[in-house]
Design a protein around this nucleic acid. Structure first.
Length: 608
DNA sequence: CCCCCCCC
């Protein structure tokens, strides 16, 4: 029988995600289970997303969860890998986002099938205390704790500063990790991996301007900030991507909650701070990425920070939004990114990033570091001012994507993260672990202060409003506009066309209840299709043919329980302000799935 | 000395 790579699970669970030596080593593991997860599509809205498999792999001592890349799904469906299969992992990727490590198996080779589990492996996750609190912002964690192995992959040498002692004035080259307020007379040799816009502020304590940079060497990274005069002096001189000797800056304690740079300290550039460009750039790593494939974005939590790379399929013009909170106009631009996973996702650029984005090249590959995961339309991405984007970076992933897109990707259609393709409905994915009771939603004023809020609920239909259950809509794909009958044809004002017949679309208003109370939920076409199991055209036809059958269908729709993703939004109509609850997703209960989730919940409670 | 990261 094959020898499992004892200890590899611990390595995979603890290594720096950028440590290629760890994640490309040929570990021998045993699969304890393969489980299909997520993503059934009950609204009959068309394409089904690819299945994904979560696997449990063991080294005989410990086991951990991982995802199987979708291109390996066939190994599960064909039973090439099953429970107890022993295989060599040939390629893995690892992302680490908000305390949640995501290991994806990209390549493996089956060695043998055995009858039983080897050893008594323990769940490596079980006692993981402090996982959430460890590193709030993780994209940076990987860059800031490089192991020597990881550094050597990026650079020609794995040696660390301070050595060899550089010639001339830059005697004491310190590693960034070694900086503290107790050190003086240091010099760092670091690459600017990120430079912000110049920001101005004005508050009770005064006003001014500032900028920040992220500085990185192969020991770690640190944030540097320049205020006022230092902006004038240094902002033009520090360029993203270049390497500098920096000395005589002040080392302050970092306020961690405001920074996703993993360092206890940060630099403040002062009047006498010295900055000199360095042209001899060995030992100074370039940005390291932990790319999350676009199809796996829904594995990440809202507000997680991650790295992605994709082809820009579309780029909107710059528009301006009005930030209510800040009372100012902010330029923004939307990009649509796609990748080989077959998914597309929207990426929002802000401010200068939005304005300066070049549309000269039609479908560039762009690598993003440190972007925020949002839940608009299922999943969306947004840049922070600390995020970076690199167009056509000189890295393997970029070349791979370029080749794929030019040979086939450009012709492909892509799956969006949203269930409701129409765009009218939007909202977060259903989150079983975070179901709200209807009473809580009402009592705590979800959606109250003008800001729409998403929540998940599990509720049972009590009553469906029978009048105005649908409207005649434009049959043009994606239009959905109400059409008017004029002389026997149906006119769409938006498309400026007439059609022989409309396509009826549901506008559902229904009372639902859970153990805590009831609420009225509003839903569009997908909701009606899910509830009645037929299109609005079909339902109307039945109504006209046999009203009693229609009544029976309406009646039968009651008392069914669904998982809902809802959006609470304040709404004023006829001078009445109230909160309306829109359904962005509706899923019939899958009792097997629910039972498994409850079992897992019991197990996890028991494991603690 | 900022620390907001926005909108649909």
């Amino acid at each position: 029988m094959s020898q499992l790579s004892a200890g590899c699970i611990k390595l995979l669970q603890t290594a720096d995600p950028g440590d290629l030596d760890v994640f490309n080593s040929p570990y021998v593991v045993q699969f304890l289970s393969t489980k299909r997860v997520g993503n059934t599509n009950p609204t009959a809205s068309g394409a089904t997303p690819p299945d994904r498999y979560r696997i449990i792999m063991s080294d005989g001592t410990q086991y951990m969860q991982a995802m199987l890349a979708t291109q390996l799904n066939e190994m599960v469906t064909s039973n090439t890998i099953t429970k107890n299969t022993i295989a060599v992992l040939e390629k893995l990727t690892c992302s680490f986002v908000q305390g949640k490590r995501l290991v994806v198996v990209l390549g493996l080779r089956v060695l043998e099938h055995v009858a039983e589990k080897i050893g008594e492996p323990q769940n490596i996750d079980a006692p993981a205390s402090g996982a959430e609190t460890a590193t709030p912002a993780v994209a940076s964690a990987s860059t800031s704790v490089p192991t020597p192995a990881a550094a050597s992959v990026n650079m020609s040498s794995s040696s660390r500063p301070p050595q060899p002692p550089p010639k001339g004035r830059h005697g004491n080259i310190y590693p960034i990790e070694g900086l503290s307020p107790y050190q003086n007379n240091w010099t760092i040799k670091a690459r600017v991996t990120q430079k912000s816009d110049i920001k101005t502020w004005s508050n009770a304590r005064g006003e001014g301007k500032l900028f920040n940079v992220t500085l990185m060497d192969d020991s770690g990274e640190i944030r540097g900030t320049g205020f006022n005069l230092a902006v004038d002096e240094l902002y033009p001189r520090l360029e993203e991507g270049k390497v500098y000797y920096i000395s005589k800056a002040r080392v302050n304690l970092a306020k961690k909650k405001f920074s996703n740079v993993n360092n206890d300290y940060e630099l403040s550039f002062e009047r006498n701070t010295e900055v000199e460009e360095c042209h001899e750039v060995t030992n100074v790593p370039t940005i390291k990425y932990n790319f999350v494939p676009l199809n796996l974005l829904e594995e990440l939590n809202k507000d997680a920070i991650c790295d992605v790379i994709g082809v820009v399929k579309e780029a909107s013009p710059v528009t301006e939004i009005t930030s209510v909170k800040q009372n100012r106009q902010i330029p923004k631009r939307e990009l649509t990114l796609v990748d080989k996973s077959g998914f597309s996702v929207r990426m929002t650029l802000w401010g200068k990033q939005a304005e300066q984005y070049s549309t000269a090249e039609s479908s560039p590959v762009i690598a993003f570091k440190g972007v925020k995961v949002g839940d608009f339309g299922g999943r969306s991405l947004s840049m922070y001012s600390s995020s970076t984007m690199h167009v056509n970076p000189d890295i393997d992933e970029c070349f791979t994507l370029r080749g794929w897109y030019d040979s086939s990707g450009a012709e492909q259609t892509f799956k969006a993260h949203s269930m409701s393709g129409g765009g009218a409905a939007s909202g977060a994915a259903f989150n079983r672990a975070d179901i709200r009771s209807l009473d809580e939603v009402k009592q705590t004023g979800y959606g109250m202060p003008e800001k729409p809020e998403n929540f998940s609920a599990r509720a049972t239909i009590m009553h469906i409003k029978a009048d105005n259950i649908s409207y005649p809509a434009c049959p043009t794909q994606g239009c959905n506009k109400k059409v008017l009958e004029i002389n026997g044809t149906w006119r769409c004002e938006k498309c400026e066309q007439s059609y022989p017949a409309p396509e009826h679309r549901y506008i559902m208003s229904m009372a639902v209840a859970d153990y805590s109370g009831q609420a009225w939920l509003q839903g569009f076409n997908e909701v009606g299709v899910a509830v009645f199991g037929m299109t609005a055209n079909e339902l109307l036809e039945k109504k006209e043919r046999d009203p009693s059958e229609y009544n029976a269908i309406m009646h039968k729709a009651n008392c069914h329980t669904f998982n809902f993703s809802c959006r609470a939004k304040q709404d004023t109509y006829n001078e009445n302000t109230r909160i309306r609850y829109g359904i962005s997703r509706i899923q019939p209960l899958n009792y097997k799935e629910e039972a498994i989730a409850m079992r897992d919940l019991l197990y996890s409670a028991w494991a603690r």
